[in-house]
Design a protein around this nucleic acid. Structure first.
Lengths: 227, 227
DNA sequence: AGGTAAGCCTACTGGCGAGTAGGTAAGGCG
DNA sequence: CGCCTTACCTACTCGCCAGTAGGCTTACCT
């Protein structure tokens, strides 16, 4: 132990910038999700990332910039995951179903991302909430468009845009809340949780109480086996 | 004007402890709702309350105790407001409807309380989240019981408790989210927003698209005039 | 009136954490 | 092989804010 190693203790291996940035972002999402924006310190993020604080500032700028970048990255990943699972040609209920499945699938596999997006981002004032509200707004518009379009299938001429938007907000919120609940009760698979929400918003309690359930038009396996 | 007033500039009028505590709590809820837990400073709270910082500590203890007390007070107020609006003898759908109206009524008249409860409390780790999760849990249980009981009216023997709970979580979340949306779109009255959610969760999109709507059993005025 | 306790204050300390100054190793290229 | 650019570090400053020490003032009670 008295012999000096040529390797200085706190010296990280030299890496190209892009790789380090990825590492740092991953560490930041992890720490932000566990502690929240304010309680998270740049010291801890740098420690988790395996580098020193000045590198953080050199690569990602201030704490706020870093956080905003995290939000943007995770939001983009999520929206892409959902968009990937939905096909625009399908009828509205199937589109909704696909979207829900993709959403819960993403949350199940990216819990930290979800924490950052849903809890942290929305509760910090400043530009973060705007960033997040932006994505949320896009999601709501998407659902609202689906609902309006869906009306064309029935005989109701056209629900008010405001009404569709508020319903979409309720639906998105239901999804968020259910996802949170799921994090605390993770024993059930994503598909089952998604199917529950699908039934709730498509059939309503009234029908469910009467024993009616929604199921996809016999393509894949039915979402809830008759247990 | 050059004569000294006997009133010292920063000296507040003497008041009994109970009254001051109320003032302080009101100020705290206001500041916490605007800035969030961390960004809120005890200095600002004391300033808004019209007293000096040591009084805060003398009366309400540390910042964390103060915040927890705020949460408890507001949560209790809200639960009482809702419980007040619901009568246990009514059929399930009417109970749900009453609860929704009471909820949105409360939020409309206590926006700051709602901000503190929904945004701030849930995003801070620590004992606050527990406090809040507690109330939320009670609300969910309440709704879940309603759903289970509701099943007895139909011919389905009994939905699984887990399923009822997750549906209740989704419903509570939908309410929270819709309340948030409403804060940004406050032009509509509480009753209309409540009616939207009622229709969504009771009828489902499937029925709504087909033109069916739920309405209360002809007692009060109908929730949504045929516009 | 005079005592006294409750209500109120100004003015500090101490620690934590964002952001920085200035220096050290290591890979590439002549 | 030496030079220089890029990656990386240790070790600070500085402001903000939770929490406190110690003293003043006013209402009530006898």
């Amino acid at each position: 132990m008295h012999a000096e190693q040529p390797v200085r203790p706190g010296r990280a291996k030299r890496l190209p910038r892009a790789v380090r940035e990825r590492q740092i972002m991953d560490a930041a999402v992890d720490v932000f999700s566990r502690l929240g924006f304010h309680a998270a310190s740049m010291d801890e993020i740098s420690e988790v990332a395996g580098i020193s604080k000045p590198m953080l500032y050199a690569y990602l700028g201030s704490k706020e910039e870093l956080f905003a970048t995290c939000i943007r990255r995770e939001a983009t990943r999520m929206m892409e995951a959902i968009a990937h699972g939905v096909e625009a040609e399908e009828p509205p209920d199937v589109q909704l179903w696909s979207g829900l499945r993709a959403f819960f699938g993403f949350v199940g596999e990216n819990r930290a991302s979800w924490q950052v997006l849903h809890r942290q981002a929305s509760s910090q004032g400043g530009p973060f909430a705007r960033e997040l509200a932006d994505m949320r707004g896009r999601a709501i518009s998407l659902v609202a468009a689906l609902l309006v379009h869906s009306s064309d299938f029935g005989d109701v001429p056209r629900a008010g845009d405001k009404e569709a938007e508020s319903l979409a907000a309720a639906l998105v919120g239901a999804g968020e809340s259910l996802a949170d609940w799921w994090l605390d009760n993770p024993e059930e698979p994503a598909g089952v949780v998604a199917a529950r929400l699908m039934n709730l918003v498509w059939m309503g309690f009234g029908d469910l109480v009467a024993g009616d359930v929604w199921h996809p038009p016999s393509r894949r396996s039915s979402p809830e086996k008759g247990s």
